[in-house]
Design a protein around this nucleic acid. Structure first.
Lengths: 333, 333
DNA sequence: CTCTCAAATGTAAGCGCTTACAAAATTATT
DNA sequence: AATAATTTTGTAAGCGCTTACATTTGAGAG
């Protein structure tokens, strides 16, 4: 593999000059630029990004931490972030934290050790304090889908409370009075916020909240099934079921069907997130759009602007609004 | 950020010694190891991976090229590869090629410029010749889901022809005689192989193949819908529909339902790939398992063995068998 | 107590690049 | 034509690490 030295020799110029034409920042005369470019082409020269990074203290790469490498939600996030950054000549290094404190921590340390210019984190398990330390250290950090006190400038979040409210409100507006709820793990902020929204909607409509109407799942499909089965026993006769995410809604739909309910005529179901497969479901799932795409985009723009001095084409905002996506699983009563 | 130099000073030893304890290969006395480790801990030292790579000519990272960062299929592949490699202390750098020759090429060059120790490629658009050149160059390369002549040792593929055969055979065994087919883009080897298998199954059963029974889609959901609509006109009255992937099968199901067909009593549908969401569909999709998980795992083990001298726990194989996954969309006639 | 020899540690030369600074070449000014 | 101002190019010192080789240390043998 050719090095810059060989190029400089072939072109009859110094190392510095070759470096200059590569980076295009300093001025080089047309004639020498041509010589150098020819030499590069004939040698098939490819700069060593590692050496560049070491010398320039700039890697042109942004670290992205997601919880999993699979799943619609993260697929969307990864795609979006990569798209925006790549358009601007930056690269993304992706790692997975698997919602485990130790592994998230390791993943972040890995990204730091690779000297990423910035970090975009969908960190769920790591502590607020750790994130604060991170932000206080040199490296620019952005947090997605998690609000950390005193880090508002670095967080991009959807209004989960509002989303939960909207989901339940939609059911109420459709005439439902007895509404069950399958929640995510309540130690997670987004899960508890969504539930809070649900309660607010009930209260506002003068409906009393019943503890037995809630099942705490784990955001996975199977806990949606479980939840549905459990709620039938403890809460029974509800006509609508709000789920804190689409996976659990899908599980609940399966369980409901097995229990003989027609959806939506006998049971309405509302999901949350609007992941890709929610419209593959039958009936197509009515859900709350979680603007993960917009958040990922915004996070990427933030990084471009703050780290690379590339002006964001849209104003940077930190709070995103959820939205009801009306499809076929919410029926009027 | 502390450097090795500061550690060596704090510990009162030379750079080389610090490096030795970091890498653990050369012998260091217990006493000095302790001193160095203490110094590292108190400084919060974190080795600079970039500098290590430059000096050692080893990055401990493997490049992974996928077509997209979203979607079940690639999610599965990324997760698997990362899992195996991370267990062995190696890291994965993921890029997307978007099934576009130029972008795939750029993505691969990026991985090379980052000096990955090896490349795992799900390359669809780039030419065979380019892949051969790549393999002939220094960098170890493995290709997933694509068979390149003379590169058998580097390819990990599923027997697509056989899979196509199995799908159609399953329909035939269930009594179907008039079978439609929605294909992927035929310039893609996997798509044409699957179609070839379909034809073989028909022939073997003494069924004649009719050109109008095939619709060439693009592997996306919408072309499944289109295909279904198109085939109703050109081929009509078929009782089974084989689709070259699950996305198109899902689209076809939607279109079929809109056209008033009950699945599977009036129309049987078979997919291909067995992606995660295929079991969320209603009815749950009968499909052909594409062992992407196994292939990704194998590719990762190949790299571990050939590049890092870590013995693979399972024998390296290159050809993977598809398998029928019986669920609810194939009905007996 | 000296001598060997192996084990532990140190020295210094890179890895391939960037970049401040110096030097040379070119252009403008008088 | 001589000098100044400006542009272009070269020189060399790092960036933070690894590693071949040289040196020191210490233990066991005589």
């Amino acid at each position: 593999m050719a090095t810059i030295y060989q190029v400089s020799e072939a072109a009859g110029v110094s190392l510095a000059t070759v470096s200059r034409v590569m980076n295009g920042n300093a001025k080089v005369s047309e004639r020498t630029r041509k010589k150098v470019e020819d030499a590069m082409a004939s040698l098939g020269y490819q700069p060593n990004a590692i050496a560049q990074s070491l010398a320039s203290n700039r890697t042109n790469s942004v670290g992205l931490l997601v919880s999993e490498l699979h799943g619609s939600y993260f697929g969307d996030l990864m795609s979006t972030v990569e798209h925006v950054l790549k358009q601007n000549g930056k690269h993304v290094i992706i790692t997975a934290g698997h919602v485990d404190e130790k592994r998230e921590h390791e993943a972040i340390e890995f990204l730091k050790s690779r000297r990423c210019d910035a970090l975009i984190l969908h960190a769920e398990a790591v502590s607020d304090d750790y994130l604060k330390t991170l932000v206080d250290s040199k490296i620019p950090v952005v947090v997605i889908n998690r609000k950390v006190d005193a880090l508002d400038e670095n967080c991009f979040v959807v209004d989960n409370e509002r989303g939960g409210y909207m989901a339940t409100k939609a059911a109420i507006d459709a005439g439902h009075k007895k509404i069950a709820y399958i929640s995510g793990p309540l130690f997670k902020k987004d899960a508890s916020d969504r539930l809070a929204g649900h309660k607010r909607a009930l209260q506002e409509a003068g409906l009393t909240f019943d503890e037995t109407s809630v099942f705490e799942g784990d955001f996975h499909e199977s806990s949606g099934q479980e939840g549905m089965q459990h709620l039938q026993k403890t809460f029974s006769d509800f006509t609508a079921l709000v789920c804190a995410n689409d996976e659990m809604a899908s599980g609940a739909m399966t369980a409901a069907r097995e229990a003989g309910f027609d959806i939506p005529s006998q049971l309405s179901i509302i999901g949350f997130d609007n992941v890709l497969f929610s419209r593959y479901l039958y009936p197509k799932l009515t859900t709350i759009n979680n603007p993960i795409h917009a958040m990922g985009e915004m996070a990427a723009y933030w990084v471009l602007q703050h780290v690379y001095d590339i002006k964001s084409p849209i104003p940077i905002e930190h709070l995103f609004e959820p939205e009801v996506v009306n499809r076929d699983t919410l029926g009027k009563l």
